[in-house]
């Protein structure tokens, strides 16, 4: 769905849904996911529909994913870091306990 300009070299490895994904420093988690071919980030909590990033700048809150065990983080506002773990939630909610 997206490719990367050759001048951007991937040198950071994160984990998305348990799979290692190599990504570039300076990427947001959202950019890393899109570059990895992931278009669906979550299911909408109310209508269950598929959702992905709309704004890429922190406004729309459509790119919410679990990052390092913390639910509902904005993927587009979180910079990648070696070893960062992303989990997509598909039930639209998170445990409160």
């Amino acid at each position: 769905m997206f490719r990367r300009l050759p001048e951007r070299k991937a040198s950071v490895t994160i984990e998305i849904d348990g799979e290692p994904v190599s990504t570039a420093p300076g990427d947001s988690v959202a950019a890393a996911m899109l570059a990895a071919g992931i278009a669906v980030f979550r299911h909408a909590p109310v209508d269950g529909g598929l959702r992905g990033p709309w704004c890429a700048m922190g406004v729309c809150f459509e790119c919410l994913v679990e990052i390092d065990g913390e639910p509902n983080r904005q993927a587009c506002m979180t910079p990648v870091r070696e070893g960062l773990r992303v989990a997509r939630r598909t039930d639209g909610s998170e445990p409160g306990r």
Partner: peptide, 8 residues
């Protein structure tokens, strides 16, 4: 708060 799974 944001939505969470029912726990209460």
């Amino acid at each position: 708060t944001e939505r969470v799974e029912r726990f209460m």
